[in-house]
Write a protein that binds this DNA or RNA. Structure first.
Lengths: 170, 170
DNA sequence: TATTGTTATACTCTATAACTATA
DNA sequence: TATAGTTATAGAGTATAACAATA
């Protein structure tokens, strides 16, 4: 509602060209208010962190999602697919192929529950436990260590606390 | 390498059932070490924030990506598609349909550059400027306001600073 | 020869409906 | 009737190759 459709009187000779706004192309585009938008910075940071996670855990070929499943199975024996998937915010249909890939690599297994023969109890295999242990070591010594270096132990704790607050209470 | 394939002597009567590990199903699954993994919490927080952004800006039907494009066009007149897309970390091929949707809603327009007739200068339309202004108001008064309420102004600044550090230097 | 915008394409994530076998 | 796991499918988001127009 400010200026309408360019009734700007066309300038003189030098710049009668279509859209020559005299922009310094060597100058970087300005983020402006975008750099103050929490969601934007949050997303960029998240991508960076996942990228680094993948790099650090590359020797074991685990994605963040796969790692989180193994970690959850280790700490919660006897749970079924629905329970694990729900906890991670993964929809049951999408959890099937994720599990298939882990099971085909012999990292975990589905065991038909005797209590309720509809459900599959999930368990880590020995190989799964071993891979998880090695993955944890990589995450701690490489991935989280780099974050610690960047933020300092205090900064990391502060950040974690605030993100947890957002994830839980926002 | 710890315990091998379940040579566990089968227990007595009561629990001879297949995989009855006596789990309290009413008890929530424990996140365990996952709640200390920065990447995990970061991702969950990011999803929450984007969710709230969409809710707050729903009246204007703008996604975070679309909003960021409008914001960037407003602050950087005379730039072409490649420059804007690169700044946002969007690949040029994927930027085409994003722009198509904005242009079809008359929020921005592509103008063939006179300097380099290969490139399209991007400009906000009057409607684009108007929608952006209204979107900014919604973001500030609803979205960021809620975050401020949760974290406090200081907390929000601290969080932004740390996330920026990760996004830029990690 | 290189670059801009574009098309085509593919792969991952995410989301919903519906089936089967059990309960 | 309802639930667990599954299939099929569709839509975003993201990635690469290649083409036409232009430099």
């Amino acid at each position: 509602m400010a200026d309408s459709a360019k009734p700007v009187s066309r300038p003189h000779r030098e710049s009668r060209k279509e859209a020559a706004v005299a922009v310094d192309e060597t100058q970087a585009v300005q983020l402006g208010e975008l750099s103050d938008l929490l969601g934007y910075v949050l997303k960029r940071a998240q991508l960076k962190v996942f990228e680094d996670f993948l790099r650090c855990v590359a020797p074991l070929q685990l994605t963040p999602a796969q790692f989180s499943v193994l970690l959850l199975l280790d700490g919660n024996p006897g749970r079924n697919q629905t329970e694990i998937a729900n906890t991670l915010g993964i929809l049951r249909p999408n959890f099937v192929s994720l599990l298939d890939s882990l099971e085909s690599r012999d990292l975990c297994s589905r065991v038909r529950s005797a209590n309720d023969r509809r459900s599959h109890i999930l368990m880590l295999t020995d190989k799964g436990r071993s891979v998880l242990a090695r993955a944890k070591k990589l995450v701690v010594t490489k991935h989280e260590a780099r974050l610690n270096e960047l933020l300092g132990p205090d900064g990391r704790e502060t950040l974690l606390a605030m993100l947890t607050k957002i994830a839980e209470d926002f």
